[in-house]
């Protein structure tokens, strides 16, 4: 149990770190990779998914805070929010982005954890058949 929790925290930190590195590359699709790497550290699928979700989610929150408060980008989202929801709704767009960050991290983490387990399963199966 302790090991699982430790892996969860490591997974979150790894996801956070990779998310920040990937933010330098303007290919948002890579964010699944960050969750995937964090997830692969965890054997339990739920913990893997959580490490991806929390890692990506926290990073996107920090990124958005920086963009909104230090780069003054809120106006742009307000303008965009007005296009699809209504004026003064930029904050909803930002909330949705954060939510999607958690979801993408969750999906990446799930893929990492379950995929890792499947690889391990095949690896073990192959090893045991070789031993036989």
């Amino acid at each position: 149990m302790e090991q699982d929790k430790r892996n969860l925290i490591i997974g979150i930190l790894v996801t956070l770190g990779i998310s920040s590195l990937l933010s330098l590359i303007p290919v948002w699709q890579l964010i699944f990779l960050a969750g995937l790497v964090g997830g692969i550290i965890n054997r339990k699928i739920l913990y893997g998914a959580l490490s991806g979700a929390i890692g990506v989610g926290i990073f996107w929150i920090l990124y958005i805070i920086d963009g909104v408060f230090y780069k003054g980008l809120y106006n742009l989202f307000d303008i965009f929010g007005a296009l699809i929801i209504g004026s003064g709704m930029g904050w909803i767009i930002l909330l949705l982005i954060i939510l999607l960050g958690f979801i993408f991290g969750f999906l990446g983490g799930s893929l990492g954890s379950s995929g890792g387990n499947l690889l391990l399963y095949y690896y073990n199966k192959q090893s045991s058949s070789e031993r036989k």
């Binding site: 990937l22 933010s23 330098l24 590359i25 303007p26 290919v27 948002w28 699709q29 964010i31 990073f59 996107w60 990124y63 958005i64 963009g67 780069k71 003054g72 980008l73 742009l76 989202f77 965009f80 296009l83 699809i84 767009i93 982005i97 999607l100 960050g101």
Partner: peptide, 22 residues
């Protein structure tokens, strides 16, 4: 959608987040 990809436009590291600042 509406002429542009929402992901390319909205997600951190992309689109609106990379426009010039003050």
């Amino acid at each position: 959608i509406l002429g542009f990809s929402l992901g390319n436009l909205l997600f951190p590291g992309n689109g609106l987040w990379t426009v010039p600042g003050e």
